[in-house]
């Protein structure tokens, strides 16, 4: 895996058309303030702050196909939609607008294929077909990034509820570890190499 093709930088570059300067630029104090409210919103089951109910249903449905719920929990259980609602808060108008434009365009495509515009009302097979058609777009790349970020960021941002994302990949968020860390170094110690 090369740094050049797979680095964060090139990821951002691939979505640069969605948000010209950069995707999702935030300042920490603003985000932390938003996080506190997001945590509260989780507890209250409150309304979304940025997303409309329709947008929330759509982005939730898209993220649920990117990381589906199958034999293990997925994006939906991890609360990815709350993460998106959190990080797209105040100051994110331009990026949010790009996402909204992308969604509207996507819904137009859906309407052409299925007669009705709502992604979340399609069945899973139909959803996957539609996503397959937009896989290479900055819109999809941005929703994918937000989905994965929401799955695997700190829960204080609204996603990764109960560390569902960390559990999925086998990451244990401890403050400290001691050797051996895995199979091969344990084996190395045992053999006295």
């Amino acid at each position: 895996m090369t740094r050049q093709t797979l680095s964060r930088r090139s990821f951002l570059k691939s979505t640069a058309r969605t948000a010209p300067a950069s995707v999702l630029v935030l300042t920490l104090p603003m985000v932390l303030a938003a996080c506190r409210e997001a945590q509260q919103a989780r507890l209250d089951g409150a309304d979304f702050q940025v997303l409309s109910q329709e947008e929330a249903a759509e982005f939730d449905a898209i993220s649920a196909r990117i990381v589906p719920s199958d034999d293990t929990a997925g994006a939906r259980e991890a609360g990815v939609i709350y993460f998106i609602d959190t990080v797209m808060r105040e100051g994110r108008d331009r990026e949010m607008q790009a996402l909204r434009d992308g969604l509207r365009e996507f819904q137009t495509q859906i309407a052409l294929s299925f007669g009705a515009p709502y992604f979340h009302e399609l069945n899973e097979a139909e959803q996957d077909t539609m996503l397959g058609q937009i896989e290479a777009t900055p819109f999809f790349a941005t929703v994918r990034m937000l989905t994965i970020a929401g799955l695997l960021s700190l829960p204080e941002y609204g996603g990764n509820r109960d560390f569902i994302g960390y559990q999925l990949i086998g990451y244990d968020s401890r403050a400290a570890w001691s050797a051996p860390y895995g199979f091969y170094d344990a084996d190395y110690m045992e053999r006295g190499e």
Binding site: M1, T5, L6, R8, F11, R65, I66, V67, P68, D70, T72, G74, D128, L131, E135, R144, M145, I148, A149, L151, L152, S153, G165, Y166, L168, I169, Y171
Partner: peptide, 23 residues
């Protein structure tokens, strides 16, 4: 880093970048 890995892992050649197999 977990999140960075999530973003990169679908980029391995020949593997999907979303969906059940990606997961």
């Amino acid at each position: 880093a977990p999140m960075l890995f999530g973003l990169l892992s679908g980029a391995r050649t020949g593997t999907p970048s979303w969906g059940s197999e990606y997961k």
